[in-house]
Amino acid sequence: MPWLQIRLATLPEHSEILEDALLLAGCKAVTLIDTDDQPVYEPIRGTTPLWQHTTIQGLFEEDVDVAHLVALMDSVIAAHQLRVASISTEILEDKDWEREWMDNFKPIACGDRLWIVPSWQTPPDAAGVNLKLDPGLAFGTGTHPTTFLCLQWLNDHIQAGDTVLDYGCGSGILGLAALLLGAERMTGIDIDPQALIATDNNAAVNNIAAERYFVTTDTNDLESHYQIVIANILAGPLCDLSDAIASYLKPGQPLVLSGILAHQADTVMAAYSATITFDPVVTLDGWVRLSGRRKAVRERL
Rank of each mutant, 00 (worst) to 15 (best):
residue 188 G to I: 06
residue 153 W to P: 08
residue 173 I to F: 00
residue 157 H to G: 03
residue 214 F to W: 08
residue 208 I to S: 06
residue 191 I to K: 08
residue 209 A to S: 15
residue 172 G to V: 05
residue 169 C to Y: 03
residue 185 R to Y: 14
residue 159 Q to N: 13
residue 168 G to M: 04
residue 193 P to K: 03
residue 156 D to H: 12
residue 191 I to M: 01
residue 178 A to F: 07
residue 191 I to Q: 09
residue 199 T to I: 09
residue 149 L to K: 03
residue 184 E to Q: 14
residue 174 L to R: 10
residue 147 T to D: 02
residue 191 I to G: 00
residue 195 A to N: 01
residue 175 G to P: 11
residue 188 G to M: 01
residue 144 H to C: 00
residue 144 H to I: 01
residue 163 T to Y: 02
residue 159 Q to G: 06
residue 170 G to Y: 09
residue 211 E to Y: 11
residue 143 T to C: 01
residue 173 I to A: 00
residue 190 D to I: 01
residue 152 Q to W: 09
residue 188 G to A: 02
residue 156 D to S: 13
residue 170 G to M: 07
residue 184 E to T: 10
residue 189 I to L: 11
residue 165 L to N: 10
residue 150 C to M: 10
residue 193 P to I: 05
residue 143 T to G: 03
residue 159 Q to D: 12
residue 160 A to M: 13
residue 207 N to R: 14
residue 208 I to W: 08
residue 174 L to D: 02
residue 144 H to D: 01
residue 206 N to P: 03
residue 215 V to R: 06
residue 190 D to F: 02
residue 177 A to H: 08
residue 157 H to V: 08
residue 195 A to Q: 00
residue 210 A to L: 15
residue 181 L to G: 05
residue 161 G to N: 04
residue 173 I to V: 12
residue 191 I to S: 07
residue 208 I to R: 12
residue 156 D to W: 00
residue 168 G to K: 04
residue 155 N to W: 06
residue 198 A to Y: 08
residue 164 V to Y: 06
residue 206 N to I: 11
residue 171 S to P: 12
residue 194 Q to N: 13
residue 198 A to F: 07
residue 215 V to S: 10
residue 155 N to F: 08
residue 186 M to N: 09
residue 175 G to N: 10
residue 156 D to G: 04
residue 173 I to L: 00
residue 186 M to F: 12
residue 162 D to W: 14
residue 181 L to W: 02
residue 186 M to S: 11
residue 159 Q to Y: 03
residue 194 Q to P: 01
residue 183 A to E: 10
residue 204 A to D: 14
residue 211 E to H: 14
residue 184 E to I: 02
residue 199 T to D: 02
residue 176 L to C: 07
residue 162 D to Q: 14
residue 184 E to G: 13
residue 166 D to Q: 09
residue 174 L to S: 02
residue 171 S to G: 10
residue 180 L to A: 06
residue 180 L to G: 06
residue 165 L to T: 11
residue 163 T to W: 05
residue 149 L to E: 04
residue 209 A to Q: 14
residue 203 A to S: 06
residue 151 L to H: 07
residue 193 P to Y: 05
residue 145 P to R: 01
residue 169 C to E: 05
residue 176 L to I: 11
residue 191 I to R: 04
residue 192 D to W: 09
residue 170 G to W: 06
residue 192 D to Y: 05
